[in-house]
């Protein structure tokens, strides 16, 4: 009876949220110690950030281009195509930049982190570290968590810049909008704090969420090939859901 109850999926879900919360606290607690392993942190920033550049830049370019096309069409209905630069920039900075970047990073880097840590667990590497008196939370978990926190907003900035470039390419070079109008409208409306920085705050939070989920899933992955595979999938699914939910909440509070 009680095991039946404990196996109920909703209770299990709540329990794993609780575990994740406790894990978060443990990772945060290990952050000061992990600063000793700054080289590992650099390696993880390289892995999460620099290695994601190509995909983030490509996607940023195309998102900016398609935004310009779609919004040009919409704005032309209202005779407001002069505002194209503004709406492209606002859509990117406030919403698409942080969210799409986070989804991309969850897919590219989050899964890799989960699989890596899951395999380290399965091959006793985490136990071996702790046997060599190196806390795997500080050596493995915290640097990956911090790397997500640092890399995500930087990637979002790159994404945004590429998006603006793509939007300009379509709006000005292709659709023939006036260059001055495009930039002038944008610069007069876009606000550094309200738009650019608020978007970055979102990104920082997404970075924390994605890397926490990835590290947690890896840490708790059953030490089998199937277990690691499932955990990797869960990283993508949970990250995506949590990113969009947190995005909604943060947007509601920020506007």
């Amino acid at each position: 009876m009680s095991t039946n109850l404990r196996r109920h999926w909703m209770l299990q879900g709540i329990a794993s949220i609780g575990e994740c919360g406790l894990f978060f606290v443990a990772v945060l607690g290990a952050v000061p110690k992990s600063l000793r392993y700054w080289r590992e942190l650099a390696r993880q920033i390289w892995f999460v950030g620099a290695m994601s550049l190509v995909i983030v830049m490509t996607c940023g370019l195309f998102v900016g281009m398609v935004l310009a096309l779609q919004l040009y069409y919409t704005l032309s209905i209202f005779g407001g195509t002069a505002a194209l630069g503004t709406v492209v920039a606002l859509s990117l900075f406030r919403e698409l930049g942080p969210v799409v970047t986070a989804l991309l990073v969850a897919g590219r880097a989050g899964t890799a982190v989960t699989a890596e840590i899951g395999l380290m667990r399965a091959t006793d590497q985490l136990d071996a570290m702790s046997m060599m008196a190196v806390d795997p939370l500080a050596y493995v978990a915290s640097p990956r968590f911090l790397a997500g926190l640092v890399a995500m907003p930087l990637l979002a900035c790159v994404f945004n810049a590429m998006g603006i470039f793509g939007g300009h390419l379509v709006g000005v070079s292709w659709l023939g909008l006036d260059n001055g109008t495009f930039w002038g409208n944008m610069t007069s409306t876009v606000d550094l704090h309200k738009d650019v920085l608020d978007g970055l705050y979102k990104s920082v939070v997404f970075g924390g969420v994605v890397s926490l989920i990835a590290v947690f899933q890896g840490y708790t992955a059953p030490p089998t090939s199937e277990g690691v595979a499932y955990s990797t999938t869960r990283t993508v699914v949970f990250s995506s859901i949590v990113i969009l939910a947190v995005d909604f909440v943060m947007t509601a509070f920020m506007t």
Binding site: L154, C157, W183, D191, L192, V196
Partner: peptide, 16 residues
């Protein structure tokens, strides 16, 4: 590169 992108956004696309 990330900070360069941020600087670009802050100075070239905003009211700054």
């Amino acid at each position: 590169l990330g900070f360069a992108a941020l600087a670009y956004l802050a100075t070239q696309t905003t009211s700054v």
